[in-house]
Write a protein that binds this DNA or RNA. Structure first.
Lengths: 224, 224
DNA sequence: TTGTCATTCAATCAATAACTTGACTGATTG
DNA sequence: CAATCAGTCAAGTTATTGATTGAATGACAA
């Protein structure tokens, strides 16, 4: 173990082991949306608070999340290393080589949205043109913690009630928490059925932020 | 567990767990050099054949390696998914956030080569100019399984004896198995001490190949 | 066919990990 | 100050994992 190479591989492996737990990956995705208390993260993932706390500490020890105290709550947010990039590489590898992943993806997601999604690059270009409207279907609190500039926030649950706010003549791009977030898939399916010209952003808010693209945090929820 | 999202995260986690073992990562690095028998891989990593075999099967189940039979030996090589990309993301994350990794790297590696390495992109450009000679310091069998076009192969152990083959007037770029392969670090240190104008390639052969750049497999070991 | 070699399988043991429970700490509120 | 709330810690249980050993397979050669 004094061999430096072995030592390095062991360090890498330790990081991989931290990601080797579904619950932790799920906590990580939620923390990637913005700061969240332990209790909230526990609710979102269905874990017991104690269990969530322990997982979060494991994630913190490896720098995947950071934490700060706010009164009696402890807020966790994503760490500042290239976490999203690592998770993206894991996702891409999984999509390539795990038949199960492809199966689940096509069963549950692609079925809902057979048209190809819009890439981040394409969206940036089209936002410059002003030829597209942005729809954020995440819950309001996640939206408040950060969103794409100019996005309109209508949580998925409120979509039916607030259809009037959506433009019928402009193309809409909907986004969500990440590439596997169901909300945007279902929003696209629902709105397309109603005749809206709508597509899905390939990935979600964390990836956008990680790419260094501008992010709004205030309640600035007008259409661009 | 019927929840598709949980299911997906569990799939991702399973892949991460496979990488969560130092010995497996080391086997993977060796398999990334080219096809290798179980026995050879066991030798290279210091594992027992049975143990190496089991690890290799775990890696195979997740597509990180492929295998084929050749007579009575079983040859393992890297799988064809974006494995190198995933390992690269893991490495970059580790370098960013693990103080231990930075420490080990600076202690054992940077000490040997304080000058910045040459990036793959820069090397491609300079190879077009013909302004640089390529030195592959890996063992001959690894070289034979694949190497950068026009590279001269002098295994590290033979360097002293074969100095005459190296140009004194051209800049040399040395490379090896990967970003943490000691051979190229030491070769650069040794040759620089003897007055050669030599730098290290930032990463190694597997990354070059994964980037889709041309690779020679024959015994074509002339200088470019 | 028999023997040999490389690899895999099966059984075992020790170590590690995840989750639960209940007690504990630290900050806020009455 | 006492009560409460959010989070953490510590101990115990169960399940999984990695390494070892020796036997079993499958390919080849005499």
């Amino acid at each position: 173990m004094t061999n430096p190479k072995t030592e390095i591989f062991e360090q890498f492996a330790e990081l991989a082991r931290v990601l080797g737990q579904g619950n932790r990956l799920e906590l990580l995705e939620h923390a990637a949306q913005g700061e969240r208390s332990v209790e909230r993260l526990a609710q979102l993932t269905g874990l017991s608070p104690a269990n969530a706390s322990q997982h979060l500490q494991v994630l913190r020890r490896s720098g995947f999340v950071r934490s700060r105290r706010d009164g009696k709550r402890m807020l966790y947010r994503l760490g500042d290393g290239p976490v999203i990039e690592l998770l993206g590489a894991l996702r891409r590898y999984a999509e390539h080589s795990r038949a199960e992943v492809r199966g689940i993806v096509s069963d549950y997601f692609n079925r809902l949205d057979s048209l190809e999604p819009v890439s981040r690059e394409a969206l940036v270009k089209r936002l410059d043109d002003g030829s597209v409207a942005l729809l954020d279907v995440r819950p309001e609190d996640e939206f408040a913690l950060g969103h794409l500039p100019g996005a309109l926030n209508i949580p998925f649950a409120d979509l039916e009630r607030r259809l009037a706010e959506l433009p019928k003549d402009t193309e809409i791009v909907a986004y969500c928490r990440g590439p596997y977030c169901v909300l945007s898939f279902e929003a696209v399916a629902a709105l397309r059925a109603k005749g809206y010209d709508i597509k899905r952003l390939e990935d979600g808010f964390p990836e956008w932020k990680a790419a260094g693209l501008p992010v709004d945090t205030a309640g600035d929820s007008r259409l661009s």
